[in-house]
Design a binder for these strands. Structure first.
Length: 329
DNA sequence: ACCATTTGACCTTT
DNA sequence: AAAGGTCAAATGGT
């Protein structure tokens, strides 16, 4: 008997109207900050009195983080709710992925999440304030670089099913394309692994963005995971050559590939379209991608906010009067 | 000894 | 059948 559970589609997770309002509020705030940032960059002089680029960037990041956090809490509630319903219906506890592995030599069936929330970003770093564990790497057809597979470190202790795939960008090998699949339902907030710093996750994120010191900061490991190919390894955003490459057939390996990465800022705001592929994945993104690639980073940022806003605004009307309560920070 | 990564085998999807 | 995604034993680092 196979006891591997059949995961339910994450796209069915419902977000309450109140949470949608909060998400919208955050997205609007972020969009406003991005717009101010754009103005500031176009007219660097004569913007006295406004926030600095760094402050605005931090605001943008905070808005995204807050919105994601609300989604996470919604899905966590949903998962808990479903667990209760399931155990009530059949009287048996809900199996957790990873338990009840079939006997040695045989694997249980595993279920791929076709409808999980998915989005892709382009970044020069793997850091994203979550703890990940690498579980695989594959060479991909017609792709020079391998794809690495990561799962949330809290998969087994908290049942978090978020995963991500990381691959060097074909068009710009200095950048990493990261696809996030599923959202975190764990409490593994950044501070869970960064307690030594002793601030909230949002504060940590901002300070990391603004004050990150490449050489001195021994940031407690969020992302001490590697993206590796046989003769080069990346730890955080730093290139590091592997000294013992005795694997022969990996022509994609290039020891110089990461030589400039240390000059990049972490969290460079280059973000690909915020793809909410919750249902039909057959949408053709080619035109959108072409348009997108010709935009500036700040136009992209705004596009992402707008796309995210549209997504969350589909079944309720945006109204500022909804925002008079429930402070977020 | 413990834990994270590597890597070939196994499984699912197209 | 082929390609992509996941598992888990082996390996390596601390």
């Amino acid at each position: 008997m196979n006891n591997i559970i059949c995961a339910e589609s994450e796209s069915e997770i419902s977000i309450s109207a109140k949470n949608k309002r909060m998400i919208m509020k955050e997205l609007v705030k972020g969009q406003e900050s991005a717009t101010q940032l754009k103005v500031l960059l176009e007219k660097p002089f004569g913007s006295e009195g406004s926030l600095s680029c760094q402050e605005l960037t931090a605001n943008v990041l905070r808005s995204f983080t807050q919105a994601i956090s609300i989604i996470n809490s919604s899905s966590a509630d949903e998962v808990a709710h479903r667990s209760l319903l399931n155990s009530g219906q059949n009287g048996s506890p809900v199996a957790v992925s990873g338990e009840n592995r079939s006997q040695k030599g045989r694997r249980g069936r595993y279920n791929r999440r076709k409808n999980a929330l998915t989005w892709t970003i382009l970044s020069c770093t793997t850091d994203d304030n979550h703890a990940w564990r690498k579980y695989g790497q594959k060479r991909i057809l017609n792709s020079e670089f391998p794809r690495s597979y990561f799962r949330c470190s809290h998969k087994y202790d908290q049942g978090c099913r978020a995963i991500k795939q990381v691959q060097v960008d074909q068009e710009n090998p200095n950048m990493l394309q990261t696809t996030y699949i599923g959202i975190h339902t764990c409490n593994g907030t950044p501070m869970a692994t960064h307690s030594a710093i002793g601030s909230s996750s949002t504060e940590w994120e901002s300070s990391y963005l603004l004050n990150f010191d490449h050489h001195d900061s021994k940031v407690p490991n969020v992302q001490d995971h590697h993206i590796s190919s046989p003769n080069l390894t990346i730890k955080q955003e730093f290139p590091k050559e592997d000294t013992h490459s005795d694997v022969a057939d990996h022509k994609y390996s290039d020891p110089n590939l990461w030589s400039d990465l240390k000059d990049f800022q972490p969290f460079k705001p280059t973000i690909m379209p915020f793809r909410m592929e919750s249902d039909n994945n057959n949408n053709n993104n080619t035109n959108a991608d072409n348009v997108y690639s010709s935009c500036t980073d700040y136009q992209r940022l705004n596009m992402n906010f707008e796309m995210a806003s549209v997504h969350f605004d589909t079944d309720f009307h945006f109204d500022e009067s909804h925002f008079d309560e429930s402070p977020l920070l």
